[in-house]
Write a protein that binds this DNA or RNA. Structure first.
Lengths: 341, 341
DNA sequence: TTGTATGCGTTATCAC
DNA sequence: GTGATAACGCATACAA
């Protein structure tokens, strides 16, 4: 059942049917109703494929994330999806597993399909190809929004980021207030902007409070729990181990917690821990992890809204949104042997 | 840049270019290379939209799930995605939030786009419209695979389910072995097949072991943590509260655990708990929850594989796969005041 | 082995 | 207001 048959049955031309479908232009109410009735009766579904081909643009947005296992990205996707479906957009999801090569392939594959826009938390933040490709998309009229991570060569692109530096800063200041001086950070992959910014906040907080920054207290992992576990191990094996550890993201907090537990220690007792991004499950089971929280759903919503703004009117100005963070204290910022000032 | 321009530049016809793209038929190696070179040089990307329109089928599969927040479903999606991308399929994801109406709308919307197939964990398992629509898809050549849940009117459809009854049975038998007799179950929404099957396993285990089934020990929730929390509260407020509780899914386990913790009780100490579906986070933080585990990734992989089989050769026979479960004991199946037989 | 011509289901530009 | 008809970019039956 296609537009032609409907036209025939309704005794009008395809052009008129098309007008009815897109309730555009002026169609005499009588004919409009007649056409609609025929469409109803025949359970007619217009072909999005044909529409896309003719229109040269689809109502599908591509979402590219580096790690579907990380709940942060699920929250993000939920925010995106919520706004997308309200505006009749569908969401094509791609997982790159933090692999820049795979990401490049994905971005190539997306090209074939005529997506309306791209929302991406990039893996290959320093991959020239990725940056070039995204810029190309943007220039050819397919808007790109960078979410959570900046990318080299992505200067003209819109961004939705968290206020990482300040979030991290707040966390470290709290640790200092709790009396900690030997404060470590388990950061992630250095090249990622959130990682870098969180480290900046860490450094600023220490500096402003007159605490010497010791490089041995800065450990670099890779956004995953396992590597964070190793980092924690290394930190706690120092001759003067830290009394407080700030973890770069949710999964990394878990890795650190795991090390503590396996070694008979407790967060908030033996060592202070503050994480970045909340871990919902822990709240159900009474593990009081203090965290820097940000609203990933909000980030997703904002990102999709920016995209829509570009799609509706060709708004060429690029917008940069920073989503605030807030420190949630639940007790793990303390340690038994450290007294608040 | 389209196929026509490439044809012109390579000095051949569009048909030849098309043949090269789909490396089909016989094309003289020389011309093939020439065409490929031109495509390379011009950075040509074929239009999937046009291909889909001509071919009357796309390489996109729709995945419909009821709750993206539930880690089970993202495990499932990961399994699906993994197989999909290996076969050059892309994945369109829809979240229905357990809302049958929304699900129906989603399924309607999918119709417009020419998806190759549908993988669905249905929300409206008793909604005639849903069943009818899915059957219609199947008949019109768009294969449908039911994952995790049966659906009314979906008899001819392929299925990938877990062995719920047996998983549940094993869990309850273990509780009985641990000496429990007052064993409760927090089930979910009654109409869902996994819920029903898990209850069946529960009943069978009790019966076979000569333990009387008491309806007051059977609580019905709704797959979510909050409702499970209420169920737990009700159960523990009975004059003879259960000494062991079997929870219907991962989120429901969390709700139950939360009740215990808020009331100063511990799983495996004051009350025995066994959950259905593992909760990875708990393993990081040393909370030993015993669970019936199943591989959601495996379920996703199988589901996508079945779909592919249908797409490759029009294999009309419907297949039904049952993924095994296994009981993982970590200690929470015990209770201080209950001694193993 | 290669080319021509038609169809896929819409939208859009003209006319009328 | 409405109707032909040419795109849109590709696949393919049929010719050559």
């Amino acid at each position: 059942m296609n537009i032609k048959e409907i036209a025939y049955l309704a005794g009008v031309s395809v052009a008129t049917v098309s007008r009815v479908i897109n309730n555009s232009d002026s169609v005499k109410p009588a004919t409009r109703e007649r056409v609609q009735k025929v469409m109803q009766e025949n359970n007619y579904i217009p072909s999005a494929t044909a529409r896309d081909l003719s229109f040269q643009r689809s109502e599908v947005v591509a979402v590219v994330v580096p790690d579907l296992k990380n709940p942060f990205f699920y929250g993000l996707i939920e925010g995106i999806t919520r706004v997308a479906e309200k505006n009749h957009y569908q969401v094509l999801i791609f997982n790159t597993n933090e692999d820049a090569d795979k990401e490049y392939q994905v971005l190539q594959a997306i090209r074939e399909r005529n997506v309306a826009g791209i929302l991406i938390t990039a893996a290959g933040v320093r991959d020239k190809r990725t940056g070039a490709l995204l810029a190309e998309y943007q220039q050819s009229g397919t808007p790109v929004v960078l979410v959570d991570r900046f990318i080299e060569g992505g200067d003209g692109l819109d961004t939705v980021m968290a206020d990482n530096e300040s979030g991290s800063y707040k966390a470290i200041c709290e640790l200092i207030r709790q009396g900690h001086e030997r404060i470590a950070i388990i950061a992630g992959e250095k090249t990622l902007s959130p990682v870098y910014e969180r480290e900046l906040g860490y450094r600023r907080a220490l500096s402003e409070n007159g605490i010497k920054i010791r490089e041995m207290y800065i450990a670099y992992g890779n956004q995953m729990a396992d590597k964070s576990y190793s980092c924690m191990k290394k930190l706690m094996s120092l001759s003067k181990p830290p009394t407080a550890v700030f973890c770069g993201n949710n999964l990394m907090s878990l890795g650190a917690l795991r090390y503590l537990i396996e070694n008979g220690m407790a967060a908030g007792e033996d060592v202070a821990i503050i994480g970045f991004d909340d871990i919902d499950v822990l709240n159900h089971v009474g593990i009081p992890l203090s965290v820097v929280d940000r609203s990933e759903k909000e980030m997703g919503r904002k990102a999709m809204e920016i995209l829509l703004r570009h799609l509706k009117k060709t708004d060429t100005t690029s917008t940069h949104i920073s989503v605030p963070t807030r420190l949630i204290l639940r007790g793990s910022e303390k340690a038994r042997n450290v007294k608040p000032k």
